[in-house]
Design a binder for these strands. Structure first.
Lengths: 356, 356
DNA sequence: TATTAGCAGTCAGGCAAGGTGAGTGCTAAG
DNA sequence: CTTAGCACTCACCTTGCCTGACTGCTAATA
């Protein structure tokens, strides 16, 4: 029902509204853009757009504002992701290049992304997924306390404390036994995909003499927990202060938004649902964020851009930005895409290096 | 210059202002508190308090508001930290008791504290300080990549990646050598205070045959870095959303506040400067937060409460809350103190357990 | 049929005037 | 030292008015 010019009108409405933060009227449109038609014609087009619920008027005699649906059409059909400036590319390379470990990479990534977009930047730790066990460490911290450390080939290190209940006789954690245990654990599990590790761990204790078995079982249980640890889904974020700066973009307080962000579960779920086509950026707009648990309605006036990056081991994770629905989609999508790509390259470069 | 009753007046002004968010006048005071004198008398007292710059009037015909200096006097002389309710104590115990490792403890601590106070809660990782090395791990991740893991008796695990430049001949990282290296590192350094470890590491490589020395030196250097890693000063925080809820307590936007908080350096410095007397709570009010670097003026309308806790190994770290100067000092100081105490008990209980 | 000009109608937001009430400082008396 | 009384100030609210930016509609035009 909407003519080509109508879509063009929608585009400039979105662009002008994002830039000016003010409802845009027919007159302003003909003034700022050369449509070659009069304001009245634009008004007719706008009437159609309104009928399609792509724009709306805050009050009777004001200009129009894009609806969530309008943004959706804009993002799907009208936006072309323009490449970053070379200065920005430069910034990405130099800033991310200095990272020393995964924590650092993600911390830098989010800080960088929040600077590029002036929004809240989010990055998910790579899920264990297809990662493999590189090394297992068991360290005695005291007569009844043990620490297990799980190191994966993705560079992830996960430690856990274990209190061993005193047995009869008291468990003997001499170094020699721990050495043996460590050796056998690594022999049995080294190189195993995490997905399979839990299975193997279950039967691991039975290969030990009965008096050792309960202790070993405890350790194995602990490691099994680590394997499926929910930690794998931790989020890093940066630039929450940007929300305060764009505060006027929210009808009420930014409190519910901040709250929803702190409740990382919501974002993780949301990230999980957003499907990313190859090297694309996926967008979830306003009400589309609904339904990811209580508190998610705090995100009803925000949009989330997400892209995926692959860490070494082929495990996939998400990164993106969150901001008010009225954001510069074009620029932000470009930034997310560029950073995601660079991140993939950075992490798989390590990978290659490692495999050679 | 200020009479006893004058101080009492200051107290109720602070209390009423904190509770009502509105300037409090002489009439309201005599109505709500039984001073046994008339409003006019209170007015005289208030005139004196104003002369001492303990209170101020936002505009000519309005009630008074405490100044930073007024809050200072209130905190120093007029507040008694009332004990928590038993329900609150209960909450602390059950919530913190479930923690599995140090990360978890601090994450839970901040979430709890932010709930108890409705402010932003902060906790510093225990500084290595007097901590000792418990265990060192060296893991080959590939032909030219090594990961070093440093585990301290405070339960801290710090890993780092190391790219080893190909030598002549290419470095041989067979398991046997790594085993030897690991053993010697632990023999040499296990139990060493971190403060001394860097020293010893410097000469460590020289005890190896020349063809191994460069490689070992690289590893030792990497470990030395870890020992003095700035990471030791990381902060955990929770409840930033609370800032948005108390937004009206700030004259401008909360943007500079959020920004200052993200810039953890400022808070870490501030924490460092605040001196904590035994089991006390230290308070830094408004302008007192100034001078901790650019961005610190974002904190000019906030107060920071801090207490210390001792982790195992006797290392001291801070935890506290941050909120608008107009906060419930009495309650918040109680909460900070109680949580700090409990945390110390929790961590040193482990310690004891471990030493027995 | 698509476009345009013109016109009447709507309504948010800004501005000024006036009233209200909370709160003060001062003074003189108890 | 305390109190009552009084004049004064000033933020804040309400009301009314005006302006300007829009719109939707209609009738003329290409």
């Amino acid at each position: 029902m909407v003519s080509d010019r109508g879509l063009e009108v929608l585009r400039v409405i979105v662009q002008d509204y994002v830039a000016s933060r003010e409802p845009v009227g027919s007159k302003t449109i003909v003034e700022r853009h050369s449509f070659g038609v009069s304001a009245a014609t634009i008004r007719n087009d706008m009437a159609q757009l309104e009928e399609e619920e792509l724009i709306a008027a805050p009050h009777t005699s004001s200009g129009r504002v894009p609806t969530d649906k309008g943004y959706r059409v804009f993002v799907d059909q009208l936006t072309e992701v323009r490449p970053l400036t070379s200065a920005q590319r430069q910034a990405i390379e130099t800033f991310l290049g200095q990272a020393v470990d995964l924590d650092d990479v993600l911390s830098r990534t989010t800080r960088l992304l929040s600077q590029l977009t002036n929004q809240v930047a989010l990055a998910q730790y790579p899920s264990f997924g297809s990662a493999r066990i590189r090394h297992i460490e068991v360290v005695a911290l005291g007569p009844s306390r043990v620490m297990t450390v799980l190191i994966t080939d993705t560079g992830r290190v996960d430690q856990r404390l274990l209190e061993v209940q005193g047995g009869h006789p008291p468990i003997d954690m001499d170094d020699q036994f721990l050495n043996e245990l460590r050796t056998r654990l690594n022999a049995e599990l080294g190189g195993t995909a995490l997905a399979d590790a839990a299975e193997r761990l279950r039967s691991f204790a039975s290969t030990f003499p009965p008096e050792r078995a309960p202790f070993v079982a405890a350790i194995a249980g602990c490691l099994a927990e680590q394997v499926v640890a929910n930690r794998q889904d931790r989020l890093v974020m940066a630039g929450t202060a940007n929300l305060a700066r764009t505060e006027s973009d929210f009808s009420g307080s930014i409190y519910p938004v901040l709250e929803a962000i702190e409740e990382q579960v919501i974002l993780i779920k949301l990230f999980g649902e957003m499907e990313i086509d190859a090297d694309g950026v996926s967008v979830s707009i306003g009400h589309e964020n609904q339904g990811f648990g209580p508190g998610a309605q705090g995100l009803s006036e925000t949009s989330v851009l997400a892209s995926g990056y692959t860490a070494s081991g082929g495990s996939m994770a998400r990164l993106g930005v969150l901001g008010p629905t009225r954001m510069d989609y074009s620029n932000n999508m470009a930034a997310v895409r560029a950073v995601a790509r660079y991140l993939t390259r950075l992490l798989s470069a390590n990978e290659k290096h490692e495999e050679q």
